[in-house]
Amino acid sequence: MSKTQVATCINGDTHEFLCDTHQTLLDVLRHELDLTGSKEGCATGDCGACSVMLDDRLVCACLVLGVEVDGKEIETIEGMSSGSGLHAIQQKFIDLAALQCGICTPGVLVATKALLTKNKNPSEEEVRFWLAGNLCRCTGYDKIVRAVLEVAADMRNA
């Protein structure tokens, strides 16, 4: 089977890669481009560990084909901290112990950033329903929700 050439922009950098038509974006990120920050927990769109931004839309990278991202912009967890340091959301998760094992953390952070871009003042319920697609088995979600609400307040006051 011949491969398809794809040109895309990931975390601000242009990338060109060849991929099989059946390869998912998650496959491409992890196995072709060595961007292993996006995690595979299920490969069926149920766990959210591979959450990335695709042209400002929050998606599960395991549900997008590699060939679909031609000409599009992607942001992964690797693009969240700038050269000058951690994003406020990342720092808040560390400060409030909003992670234990950390496998769901990249997806939760990407999803949180997407939420706070759309809604600067989410209620607890809005946070809970927005993050309902990101499974975490360690924390019971309490500290994650608190971190999101607190960093949202910080960012509003910044």
Partner: peptide
């Protein structure tokens, strides 16, 4: 290990 875990750097 906090920074490694929030930046995707931690290797699982």
């Amino acid at each position: 290990d906090g920074v490694d875990k929030v930046t995707g750097r931690a290797l699982f």
